[in-house]
Design a protein around this nucleic acid. Structure first.
Length: 557
RNA sequence: GGCCCCAUCGUCUAACGGUUAGGACAUCAGAUUCUCAAUCUGGCAAUACGGGUUCGAUUCCCGUUGGGGUCACCA
């Protein structure tokens, strides 16, 4: 291609503006002064308004890798696709990462500011930099304009499929790879849009090798695709491929941690780096988190079908995020679980993370039950103070009625929230803060009375005869003494149960089931449901003590 | 379809070529002076299949089957 033609293209790409030379750009990005072995990692989400749980997984790995080597963890925003960008998404990403304690050392910060000397950290702000490298490639004959329309491209793919050939823009299918200057000039004159494509020198017949820090030694065919480097629209923004290589080179990334879905395009990225004359990167392709689909079989966690794929879900349900992170860490490193058991109070960042242990992980399935298990443990271990704070904070935001009731009598609420917490065997019935209403609303008369009958109670009413219910309550109240201690209280309940026709001895009940209306457990169940509207609660004595005599009497009579 | 990755309980996983194939979650049973998801005890539960190599294979090799990823001017 003649110099003249190249100049025309450069002018079009840059819009006539001066474009820096590579050396001028690279001068602004000096080598980092970091200790031996320090890793510079980067997490690069797109601002689509959706943060995938798998992204948190990858971000966590990035942060840990940098953290434990005294390196740098960069948060870069990849917004080269303006069509997909959602307003406010950038802030959302920063906030959600911060909530997981995954704020970056460099780049976008939780408060929306940007820090670091290797910026800009938003790709759309780096357009001219990409242009510099694209033009460098063009000048050296490693890039060329392609004027093919979408239709033509699709046509070609159809053709390839019909001929059972590998689809793609390569070899003889690379429509504009070997056009003459005249043809290019003609297209330019006609004002046709064009993308700047990479001129690959690879061959699909030849094989190449690279080492993946997680997958190990890989051997794959070379890249031979002439992929687009710069898009055809007036933004003149680069594609991911160019942006990745340029940014990570300039920012001094030492390891590219990214989802496994990038594995197939790694040969391309390696060739691109070579074409630019820069050192190729070390890659670590992390497994993708999956879920069992309704159709059966594993599939990628999808944004539309699985609410839990979106990190917003975890925030909304208000799981303690440390637990979610612990679960994720356990997925990544199987020895984490043991470590965590031994160091339950340690900061998760103290865990020595290893990429190596990810080798056998293949798109693990998200196990909500296990996450909840972690969450319950986490909450059970929390200090009472912390627990109260979280519960109240959630209620204030999401259940104002309950919150107001709680605040109306702080001492009472304090007692309610402390039930069966602490000690060796704390209850584990709260897995997320949004469980609060379910767990605590029955302690408050206003809500207990005004709310529709809780479901447990509705079912129960159908099961147990109404008269029987009042008989049981009556019998119970006859012997009820609010000031009695627990043992006495229990003895009194037994007395009441017996007089109402319930068996005290399980064996006896088993032997003569017809002689009794039920066992002591059944008796207690009726009391429990009348008192709380639930079939599962902490122990009755404690509840009654906290509710107080008046409430107990009101509810049981 | 081409290319790539992967194959141990339902799930996440552990096991220098020699283990009664281990753990965690889930599940089931029993225990705990009333419920319970808490606690304790116990149970069920896996090396996809077929060939090699080897005294010996979950482990190494080959094939089959199965699953996943990817083949965009999306990242």
């Amino acid at each position: 291609m003649s110099e003249e033609t190249k100049q025309r293209i450069i002018e079009l790409l840059s819009g006539g503006a001066e474009v820096s030379t590579r050396s001028a750009v690279e001068y602004r990005y000096p080598a980092r002064e970091l200790p031996e072995g320090a890793e510079v990692t980067r997490f690069c989400p797109s601002p689509t308004g959706f943060v995938h749980i798998g992204a948190i997984f990858t971000a966590m790995i990035c942060k840990r890798l940098a953290g434990q080597t005294n390196g740098v963890y960069i948060l870069r925003i990849e917004d080269t696709d303006k069509k997909r960008e959602v307003e406010g998404a950038r802030e959302l990403i920063a906030e959600q990462l911060a909530a997981f304690n995954l704020q970056a050392d460099e780049g976008l910060q939780a408060d929306g500011t940007i820090s670091g000397e290797y910026g800009p950290y938003v790709q759309s702000d780096r357009r001219d930099i990409y242009l510099t490298y694209a033009i460098d490639l063009l000048e050296r004959g490693r890039a060329y304009p392609c004027f093919a329309s979408m239709e033509e491209l699709q046509e070609a793919v159809k053709d390839q499929q019909a001929k059972k050939l590998r689809p793609g823009y390569y070899g003889e299918w690379a429509l504009w790879r070997d056009r003459t200057d005249e043809e290019v000039l003609q297209a330019l004159d006609a004002g046709k849009k064009f993308v700047l494509r990479f001129r690959s020198e690879g061959s699909h017949q030849k094989r190449m090798q690279f080492d993946d820090a997680i997958k190990g030694q890989m051997e794959v065919p070379e890249n031979d695709l002439d992929v687009p480097l710069i898009k055809s629209d007036e933004s003149r923004l680069p594609t991911y491929h160019l942006a990745h290589v340029v940014d990570d080179f300039l920012m001094g990334a030492t390891i590219i941690t990214r989802g496994e879905e990038w594995l197939p395009s790694t040969p391309l990225h390696i060739e691109l780096a070579q074409a630019l004359g820069i050192k190729t990167f070390k890659y670590a392709h992390t497994p993708v988190i999956s879920i069992v689909g309704a159709e059966g079989g594993k599939r990628k966690l999808s944004k539309r079908k699985d609410p839990e794929a979106d990190v917003a879900y975890w925030h909304k349900a208000a799981y303690p995020l440390k637990a979610v992170k612990a679960y994720l860490l356990g997925l990544a490193n199987s020895n984490f679980e043991d470590w965590y058991k031994e160091n339950p109070d340690a900061d998760l960042d103290e865990f020595e993370f290893s990429l190596d242990k990810l080798k056998t992980s293949r798109s693990p399935l998200l196990d909500m039950k296990k996450v909840e298990d972690y969450a319950k443990d986490e909450i059970a271990r929390m200090s009472q103070e912390h627990f109260n704070k979280e519960i109240l904070a959630w209620c204030e935001l999401h259940d104002k009625t309950l919150f107001d009731e709680m605040m109306a009598d702080p001492e009472y609420t304090k007692a309610v929230l402390a039930i069966e917490r602490g000690g060796d065997k704390p209850r584990k019935d709260v897995a997320k803060w949004s469980d609060a209403p379910e767990q605590f609303r029955y302690y408050y008369d206003f809500i207990f009375d005004s709310s529709v009958m809780p479901k447990a109670q509705c079912d129960f009413v159908e099961e147990v005869d109404l008269n029987e219910q009042s008989d049981v309550c009556e019998a119970f109240m006859k012997n009820y003494d609010h000031s009695a201690d627990k043992d006495t209280w229990f003895e009194n309940m037994k007395k009441s149960a017996e007089s109402a026709g319930y068996a005290l001895d399980r064996k006896e009940l088993k032997e003569n089931p017809d002689k009794f209306k039920g066992g002591l457990a059944d008796f207690a169940k009726i009391i429990r449901v009348k008192l709380t509207g639930k079939t599962r609660t902490p122990d009755l004595y404690t509840i009654m003590q906290i509710l107080g005599e008046v409430r107990v009497k009101n509810r049981l009579s």
